[in-house]
Every structure is written in structure tokens, then in C-alpha cells.
Design a protein around this nucleic acid. Structure first.
Lengths: 338, 338
DNA sequence: CCACAATAAGACAGCGTTGTCAGTTTCAAG
DNA sequence: CTTGAAACTGACAACGCTGTCTTATTGTGG
């Protein structure tokens, strides 16, 4: 039935252990022996059983990617980045949706690890900041890397971008365009990045001497409809903002939709900015000025760290980029008058 | 270190075989014995090793989902549907991106099966129609279900919707709105659904007695930019269409962007229709009139079939729905004049 | 209360690998 | 040549379960 290492060893005329050595690129195999084994592997089209390898050895050749994110585009990029790295390393990726709000999350993660013997775990925000999960992972001593965690205090590698600076950059850009009343839509409360982006917004305002106005800040959930709702709230203020900076693209798309519905010209009357530069940002009209978050690269790098030398903790920051597109422009003239 | 079935058996005071019986819900275990075992499982927080189960038994408690699709939204829904079903069944899902164009695809799929011992496979369009993959799967006798395959001739279950009828419905809707010149953007050539949607478009035109005009049909790739390119081509025709029907939402979003850029009012001057009803459809402006493809349900049902009684081949059709939103409307008056 | 089937539980091999250890070959230096 | 270390290879147990077979134990009709 199944082609096993035994078949390979028979065809190659060596012991199964030697085949195993070749498979695992161990030392002490003569070149011609190796070649014979490799030929047999190819001839029989042999793929070693991960189950057997996991059971017998110290590696399972599988890692888990755990995420809970409401932006399909974001997840897609994360998956793709991790996937690409795994492919290079010859390791399988187990994508695992999760619910950070669930009280059983840590137990589920533990169960996943027990069941699958995964060699490591990649946590994507906001699972990166679920204390119970971190504790569980540390207790087991299983290597893990976090993508865009809220803090870097853990004894674990992470890859991230500077959310504060990015939000600051965007806000500063809007201020430079003459905007004084800049609405801000906060991200999902579960994500630490939400706080940081809000802080970046405030820091930029502060530095520019623009007064912070609490009514210009609206809560959001990182999805389209919460963005729309926040926009409604902002645009019905007595003195509405001339620009709205949403903490991600999905919410910015919601803002655009509301602006269109209310016949508010973008960017002439209202500038709209997003964050992430997912595909959505260029699929809407006008295309969104946004922050390019190197999501795919972040994920790729994270997986890379997981496979790198054990014991070294690295916190790698990747560069963001302000992408100016058609959704933002100069503040309307009357707004520029004092 | 790891909690094993042995630990459970010791705590419960039974043999490991009995624990195994409880785990697998086999017959011939006394109620009180079962309870004792279950208590021990809970107390020790035991999760059986899938590797060991796969190796020893006939099941691996894992299935693979293989896809190659360029719409992140679509994939996201597929993953979610399969995932939900797997969770109910207590089975792990291995999401596996693929490249239908790759000559080694069938071998990769074979390798995946050998490595992981998966109990079954779910194929998402267009992998559903890669002959080499189907042959490989059949050769191994591994159960598989196809989501939205091009044809139902195989001896395998599938779930799908009626693409022809759906495209017909949409086209008819546009005709009923007074449109006579309806542009059509074809989907990715790898997808059989692309052909079928084109056929539905033609069938509706034909039935309504509207002449088919080849120049109104443009190729596309199911992504935003190919939609935009097709729109450019259509709108620079001597006599441009009053409506454009794109074979999916991503391409329709591209059409919208081009219309905005050219200052063409949607839907007053140009109606735009999509297909799929992904989240994108309501994230753009105006929100897209589209066909709701029950993607998530399709995926959920597909996984369900995989776990259902062996040997029965079922082809399940799920209902689509025409969703009329703001992107389509009556044809402009001058177009209604003969 | 006996015979016999149905129910219940355990012993043990084996799934396909890797780890450990022991054994054999090669080769450079003496 | 011999010697000893380095290079190479193999035998065998073990990983954590399930399948098969065997051995109690219970229940039921006559």
C-alpha cells in the first residue's frame, strides 16, 4: 500500500537508518550511498510519514499559526507570509483560527500542541497579547514568535512595526495638508495596536500644537460597518472634521461609503486615511491614503525567526511607509481660516 | 513530560485499550468505566496524539483543504466554512494553497497525503478541475469532495451553485432595467465557472433578443486590476456599454474605480454588477449589485459530505440569490431610445 | 440453575519513523 | 604495515496509539 522507508531501504540496498540519515541530512553518509538512497526515494516517490517522524523523533515538521483577526485581507497576507517561509523550510503550516475572547483559548492551544506535536507556534495579533496563551506556551517551553505584539517584554522573539510612529506620520501628513479637525477611529479594543495608533495620533497633534478634542475620537472594531458608524457620528457633529483617520483600511472604506452617501466630496471636503494598505485600500474610490504595513513580510520574518537558532530572542522592527493616494488632500479653504 | 494514554489508564485504573475505546466511542464499555476514564482524561487534560492515532489506526483526524484562488475574501469564506464543519467533527483542517498551473501539483498533493495521512480532501475551484489531481486522488482511493467544480461527471461528491442561471439572472435583471449594451468581464480562464457565467450572460441576451456583441466581452483574471483594465477597454469603445457585469466582485470594484476616475456616474450613466457577494461588495461605493454565492455554506456542506456515509456520491446544489444594491439602475434615457 | 450469547475488558503486536549504541570500514600518521 | 581515530553503517528499542485476539463477566431463555 503505502511506500515506506523500508521500501526505500530495500531498493537502495541499505538499512532504514541510513535512509533516515539521508532524509535528515545527517553527517556520515558516503556520497555514493546518499545518491543511491536519493535515487530510490525519487523512484518510489517516497514521502516520509510526518506522523511517524513526530512520534519517533524530536521534530514534527509542523508549526501552527494562530490568529483571530477580523480583516480577511490581513489574515490572508499573514497566512501567505508564513506559508512562504514554511515552504522554504519544508515544514507544514497549520492555520488555526481562534477567539481571543474565549476563556478556553489557552486550553485549546495546549490541546493543539499535544495533538499535533508542532515544533513551534506563530501568534498573530491580538492572540499575541492573550496572557493565558503566553503562559501556556512558556510552560511547555515550546518556541514561539509573535507578530505585532502589544509589548516586547516577553522572553520571545517578535516582529512588528512602529504603530505609534506610523499613526504619527499619517496625522502629521494630514496636519501638513492644513487639517486642524482630524477625526480618529480607534481599532478593536482587543488589539494593542489600537492604543498605539491612538497614541501616535495624539502625539502628532500635540507636537503640532493642535488641541486634542475627545469628541473627534470614535471607537471602532476594525471592520467596515463600525467604520461607517463612526463616520456617521463624526459627520453629524456640530463642527465636523475635515479629515478622518481610521485605524485600518476596512474602517476607512466604511467612512468613504458614508461620505458618498451624504454626498460629501472626498478629498475636497473630507480627507479619509486608512491603515494597513491591504488590497482593499486600492479597491475603493478614491484609493486610500494609508500606511503600508509590511504584513506579508512581517509574517515571513516571524516564521524565519522560529526556524532560526534556538535561544536567541530577537525583536525585529520592519519599516512602514506612508502611501499617499487620492483620498486625502488639502483642507477646505474655509477650514484654513482661523 | 507529555501526558499519554498510559497516564490516563493508570489514573482511571483500566487498560490503555479501554481508554482508547472511550476516546473512540466504541461499544462495550460500561457506563461507570467510561465515566471514570472521562474523569481521568479531564483531570490530566489529556489530548491524544494525532501522530500516534494516524500511525496505529485507520484515521488521522485530519483533512486537507486545497485551494488556488486569487480572491482573499473568497478563500476566507471557504476556509471558514470548512473550518466550522471540522470543528464540529473534531477534526483538524490543513489549509493548503496550491498553484493549478504547476506541473507538479498532483505530485505535491500526493506528497501531502502521504506525509499527513489525511482522511479526506476538499478541493476548491479551480483545483477541482485539475485532471492530474483528480487522477491522483482516485488512484489512492482517498475520499474527496469538490467545491464548485466545472463538471459533475466524476464519481465524487460535490457542492456547487448554478453559475449559468445566476449569470442569466443578473443579465436579465440588467435587461429589465432597460440596458441593451451590457459589457461582460470574463473570469480567470482556469476556472470553469468563468465559462459558465459567460454562457449565462449570453443565454439571457439571447432569450431577450438582444444581439450579442463580442467587443462587449473582455477577459479578466478575477482580480481588481484586471477588472479595471477591462473597464478601460469597454468604456473607450465607440459606443460604450450602459452596464458592465463583472464575473466577480473584485473585478467589479475595478470597474467602479475606473468609472469614478472618468467621472462617470454610477448608476446614473453606468450600472455595475458583480458576482459572489463577498464583503468587498458592500465595502465599495456604491455598494454592488451582485449574486450572493453561498460560499461559506458551500464549504461547510462540502466538508459535511466528506464526513458522511462512505460510498454515496452526492451532488448538492445550493441556491444563489440576486442582491440588488446601489450600483445598478435604469439605463440612461438616451439609451432607451431606439 | 445451566447453557450460551452478548457484553466487557485486557494483552500484545505493529504502525513508520528516529535515537542510541554497537559494529565495521577507511585513512592518516607513526 | 600497524594503530587509533574518524567516518560510516546497521540492529533494535521506542514513540503513543489502534487492531486483533483472548479472556473474563454478565445476562437471558428454557
Amino acid at each position: 500500500m503505502r511506500v515506506t522507508i523500508k521500501d526505500v531501504s530495500r531498493v537502495a540496498g541499505v538499512s532504514i537508518k541510513t535512509v533516515s540519515r539521508v532524509l535528515n541530512k545527517e553527517r556520515y553518509v558516503r556520497a555514493d550511498t546518499r545518491e543511491r538512497v536519493e535515487a530510490a526515494v525519487k523512484a518510489l516517490n517516497f514521502s516520509p510519514s510526518l506522523a511517524a517522524r513526530a512520534l519517533a523523533g524530536r521534530r514534527s515538521f509542523q508549526i501552527a499559526l494562530i490568529y483571530d483577526n477580523h480583516s480577511p485581507f490581513y489574515i490572508h497576507q499573514i497566512q501567505e507570509g508564513v506559508w512562504a517561509q514554511c515552504k522554504e523550510q519544508g515544514v507544514r503550516m497549520l492555520a488555526q483560527p481562534a477567539d481571543v475572547a474565549s476563556p478556553t483559548l489557552a486550553a485549546e492551544v495546549g490541546g493543539l500542541i499535544d495533538e499535533t506535536h508542532v515544533d513551534g507556534v506563530i501568534l498573530s495579533s491580538p492572540v499575541t497579547d492573550a496572557p493565558a496563551v503566553l503562559v501556556e506556551l512558556e510552560r511547555r517551553g515550546i518556541p514561539f514568535v509573535r507578530i505585532s505584539p502589544g509589548t516586547n517584554h516577553a522572553l520571545t522573539s517578535s516582529v512588528f512595526m512602529d504603530d505609534v510612529q506610523a499613526a504619527d506620520d499619517m496625522t502629521t501628513h494630514l496636519i501638513n495638508e492644513g487639517h486642524k479637525r482630524i477625526g480618529f477611529i480607534v481599532g478593536h479594543p482587543n488589539h494593542m495596536a489600537s492604543d498605539q495608533r491612538l497614541f501616535g495620533y495624539r502625539r502628532a497633534l500635540d507636537r503640532a500644537g493642535v488641541a486634542f478634542e475627545p469628541s473627534l475620537v470614535q471607537p471602532g472594531q476594525f471592520d467596515f460597518s463600525s467604520g461607517a458608524a463612526a463616520a456617521e457620528a463624526l459627520l453629524t457633529l456640530g463642527e465636523p472634521p475635515t479629515a478622518i483617520f481610521a485605524s485600518n483600511d476596512d474602517m476607512a472604506a466604511g467612512v468613504l461609503a458614508v461620505a458618498h452617501r451624504r454626498d460629501i466630496a472626498v478629498p475636497e471636503t473630507l480627507s479619509v486615511a486608512g491603515f494597513d494598505d491591504t488590497e482593499l485600500a486600492s479597491a475603493v474610490w478614491p484609493p486610500l491614503t494609508t500606511i503600508r504595513q509590511p504584513t506579508r513580510d512581517l509574517a515571513y520574518a516571524a516564521a524565519g525567526l522560529l526556524f532560526s537558532e534556538e535561544g536567541v530572542v530577537i525583536h525585529r522592527r520592519l519599516q512602514h511607509e506612508l502611501i499617499v493616494r487620492g483620498s486625502t488632500g488639502r483642507a477646505p479653504i474655509d477650514a484654513l481660516r482661523p
